[in-house]
Each structure stands twice: as C-alpha cells, then as structure tokens.
Design a binder for these strands. Structure first.
Length: 490
RNA sequence: GGUUCCUUGGCCGAGCGGCUAGGCACUGGUCUGCAAAACCAGGUACGGCGGUUCGAGUCCGCCAGGAACCUCCA
C-alpha cells in the first residue's frame, strides 16, 4: 500500500491520511436507505461514492467489511398522524403488511443499485432484525445514567452527556443554540430538554410496527439502529462511517453520543459525508417531492427529462463532480456526461487493437501516478477522469498512427485504463459495441459494408453513400478506417 | 435566528498562493471521394468592494446572492 489515501474527516474538518485500525483490513459503515419509497437520483450519490471507496480500498489490498443498513423501522413523521412510523403509515395506506412494503422497496433498491453497477456491501442488516441489540443499548445507556424513562419512552440525557462530553463535536453546534431553535414535536412534554432524543419510543395504539420491552410496547429510537448494527458487525471502534450530509445532524451526532456512553469512545475514526444532488438549486428529496426516481431516469418517463439516460451515464455524471460538492441536475449536464463517457468507453474498447512500437511517445508511469494521486486525494474522481481523458487522447493518437508506445508501456497503459475505468470507477459497457449478439446480423452488415468498400474502390460514390445512408437510417453507426470500416448499433 | 458551506468561461465541473484542469458546445485546421470519427490549434473565467503578500480564483474582512442542517430525509 504505497499510495497514501487522504480522506476528509468531518470530525476534524480536514483531509487526513487514512490509517486503518488493523493493518490490512477496514471496517466501513454507511447509512443506507429508508425503504418506504422508490430509489431516486439522490440515493445514488452515497451508494456510488462509497462504492468507489469500497472498490479503491479493495484495489490497494485491504480486506474491507462494508456494512450498509436497510432502515425499515423507527423513523417518525411530523406531519399528519404525529408520531406514526413512516413504514406503518404507507402500509396502512396501501393495505399491506409493513414488511411487505419493506421487501418491495428493498428489492427495488437492489435492482437499481445493480443497474448502476454498485457493488453489494458485505453485510446489509435490517434495523427490524436488530431490535434486541438496540434494546440492549437502551438498557446500557440507562444503566450508566445517561438516559431517563418517561411515560414508557426512554430519552437520552444530553445535559448529562455534556458534563463530560461534547454533544455537537461533529456538527459544530452547541446546546444553547439548539434550545432556541428546536420546534415543537411529539413527545416534547415528556422530555426534560427539547434536544434530548428518543432511544425507545412507546407506540401509539394504531402503530402496527411494535416490539415488546420492559419499558413499553414500542419501537427503537431514530438513531439507535446504526449504533447497534455497526457495533455488532464492525466492533465498537471501526474505521470509516459514511452517509449523506443531511444525516450529519442530528443522526450522526446522536450516534456518537450513544456509542460514546456505551463504549467510552467515538464509534468511527473517520466520518465522511457526501453532498446533495440538487434540482433547480434545491436539494432533491422526498420531503420536497422534487425527486426523479432512477426508474424514470432509465426510461425517460418524467416531465423534466428530455430523454432516457442509461445507468452508466448517471454514474458518470455523479463521478464527474467531487462527492463533497453539490451537483445540480440538468439535461444538458447529463447529455454532456453521456457523450464524454461514450467517447472514453469507446477508447477503452479499442485498447486491444493497439500495436506496440519501437518508441514511447508518452510517459505512462507519470499518467499512472497522476491517476493514483487523484483518487487518493479524497476520492477526487473528477480529476481522475480528466487524466483518463489524457489517456484517451493517447489511445486515439496511437490509433491514428501519429504516436506509439513500446510494448511494456502499452501494457501499462492498458492495465491503467482498465483498472481505473472499470475496476475503480466501476463503469461498464452497457451496450454491445461492434456487432451485437446476432451472428447472422454481423455477417449481413459486414457483407453490405464490404460491398461499399468495393464501390468506393470503383469510385462509385452513389452506391457507397446509399449503403452508408441506409444503414445509418436503420440505426447503425458507420466509421471508416484506414483499411476498412467499423460499425456498431446505436 | 443559529450552525456549516457555496458563488469559476455558453453549459457542467476541478483547482494545493506563482505552473494549460477536464468534459460538452463553439470556431479554424489536418485526414477523408464527401461525411463521420480521430487528431491539432483557438476563444471566452474566477459574484462585488477592500486588505495581507513580491505575487490571490486560491488567505483575511465586509457586502450581495444561494444552499444544506436545526423535523423524517442519501
């Protein structure tokens, strides 16, 4: 592992050199989706961001245990039926068993993550399957005196915690400010301070997702699941905790507080937060109802979409911005991403056609160093991609016969491009280039195009153009080369 | 109101105080029977006003505009 990885740690608000707790392994926890709706573009940002991290850590030789949870219980809703669990509400609306809703949207999430070529995490635990662990955590925190019972619910005592700790060290807030800004919510009267948060919540009678406990029939608090599941699968201290910036406060702040009481220290050493995807300058999200689902992106069926975009275009679009910057959706940006990516993938598919020469016109080692430097610098994928376009230029220049690479340099370039584009950035050729699966079609088109070559040789331009134009009308892309032709289905 | 952050060329989007980011679009050229593709060259830029510095898009201050979080959210 000669390449040092630097990641921006929200805890210190600085880029830090990554050092794993154990020499060759990494524990990574990422907050996953709440499965009560279809996955939208916003969900793809953390999935892809931490997918890159996962892939890169693996690439440089770490054994990574990547845990990404499914939230299927525990979140409260402030509007309408106050205090009702989101999952339960949706289920009643559709007259379904809540776990049926959970299963449906979990499957949908997996389906779209697969299409985006997001690798599956090592473990994908569900909150509802870890209520026992969460209750143990409640007992523990209560026993240590950092929580109190109130009317069947258990609340975390932030003031008590603040005597020896700092509630706000992650988000940079302080409790005085919080007092003046907290809104009236359900359970406010049961709490000593408005900023205290629930560890266990007594369920209202109509609440159908509930578990028995010595406190009440209820459900675990909003922030407990990640503390419980990360500790179970990664230990009480692990390397990296990731999630969206919108979870920084209160979710991650609460996680830190809970785990600090339970275990005496912060659960994770590095906290990473991806920024939001915006649409017309505003966060794309469930609350604002301004989201476009991944299904809609892939089939183009949304009023804001000028066309369908294939999953790799969406992936490339996201990777062209740094993960800590907001990224604004627009058709123009997506289309630009699509064209650039197609050109890059096209170049990669031509790598095998390159023949070694006697001289090397380019410094492959230097390009390789730059690529690794970029990805190691807090996953700077836009810089990495910029360098890959440099590699693309080389490939095309060599193809045009205007430059060359010695055999070992050529092999190095092939390896570099394939590693970066496919292994680390996780792009893939979603469409069959040249040919397709139908052999009969292949031969037919080749026959037509070889007739065209004959026509060209005879300077019969009318026939040559007719063949090309007709094929283009049918959706083929015809490219003339020095000694023949290439084609693909658009 | 508080906390954190952003404002870069036609569009998207990187930028470590001094060295061409990159992509898309555009213009000219090379190649080609023509085109396409490819390559070469080119033009536009750092919200405003001050300050620090030999030197600032990059640091500091103020102003303007915007965002996220403070409530479930990726």
């Amino acid at each position: 592992m000669e390449n040092k990885l630097f990641i921006y740690n929200t805890l210190s608000r600085k880029k830090e050199e990554f050092k794993s707790i154990n020499p060759n392994s990494v524990g990574l926890y990422v907050c996953g989706p709440t499965v009560y709706g279809d996955p939208h573009l916003g969900h793809s940002r953390p999935a892809i961001t931490y997918d890159i991290l996962f892939r890169y850590l693996n690439h440089v030789g770490y054994k990574v245990r990547y845990v990404r949870n499914i939230t299927d219980v525990g979140h409260l809703e402030s509007d309408g039926d106050v205090g009702e669990d989101k999952i339960a509400k949706k289920a009643r609306l559709e007259e379904l068993e809540p776990m049926e809703v959970v299963q449906y949207y979990t499957d949908r999430y997996h389906q779209y993550m697969d299409q985006l070529n997001v690798k599956k995490p090592s473990i994908e635990p569900r909150a509802s399957g870890h209520v026992i662990e969460q209750l143990q955590l409640v007992d523990d925190i209560l026993a240590k005196g950092y929580a109190y019972e109130s009317n069947g619910s258990v609340y975390f005592d932030v003031d008590k915690y603040n005597e020896t700790n700092n509630y706000g060290r992650l988000s940079g807030r302080n409790t005085e400010d919080m007092l003046s800004t907290t809104r009236e919510l359900d359970g406010q009267t049961e709490k000593r301070k408005s900023y205290d948060f629930a560890l266990w919540k007594k369920a209202a009678p109509e609440h159908i997702m509930r578990w028995p406990s010595k406190y009440s029939d209820g459900f675990p608090g909003w922030h407990l699941e990640c503390s419980a599941m990360s500790a179970r699968y990664l230990g009480t201290e692990f390397d990296i905790h990731g999630g969206g910036m919108d979870l920084l406060f209160p979710h991650h702040e609460c996680e830190i507080a809970q785990s600090t009481v339970a275990n005496g220290h912060t659960p994770a050493r590095y906290w990473m937060h991806n920024n939001m995807i915006t649409i017309n300058g505003q966060k794309m999200g469930k609350s604002l109802g301004n989201f476009i689902t991944l299904e809609q992106f892939f089939n183009g069926n949304h009023e804001l979409l000028e066309q369908a975009y294939n999953p790799m275009t969406v992936r490339f679009f996201i990777l062209q911005a740094h993960y800590r910057s907001t990224l604004d959706f627009s058709n123009e940006a997506l289309q630009a991403a699509q064209k650039g990516m197609e050109r890059l993938l096209e170049g990669c598919s031509k790598l095998d056609k390159l023949e070694p020469g006697s001289e090397s016109s380019f410094d492959v080692k230097d390009l390789s160093d730059k690529c690794y430097a970029a990805i190691s610098d807090d996953l700077n994928t836009p810089i990495l991609i910029a360098h890959l376009f440099e590699g693309l230029k080389w490939i095309n220049t060599i193809l045009a016969g205007k430059a060359s690479l010695k055999e070992e340099d050529l092999e190095a370039l092939k390896a570099l491009m394939n590693t970066m584009v496919f292994d680390i950035l996780g792009l893939e050729n979603s469409e069959q280039t040249s040919g397709g699966s139908d052999q009969l079609l292949d031969e037919t088109v080749n026959l037509l195009l070889s007739l065209r070559v004959d026509a060209k040789t005879n300077k019969d331009w009318a026939t040559a153009d007719k063949i090309r134009n007709e094929l283009q009308n049918l959706g083929f892309v015809i490219t003339d080369t020095k000694d023949g032709f290439e084609w693909e289905i658009k």
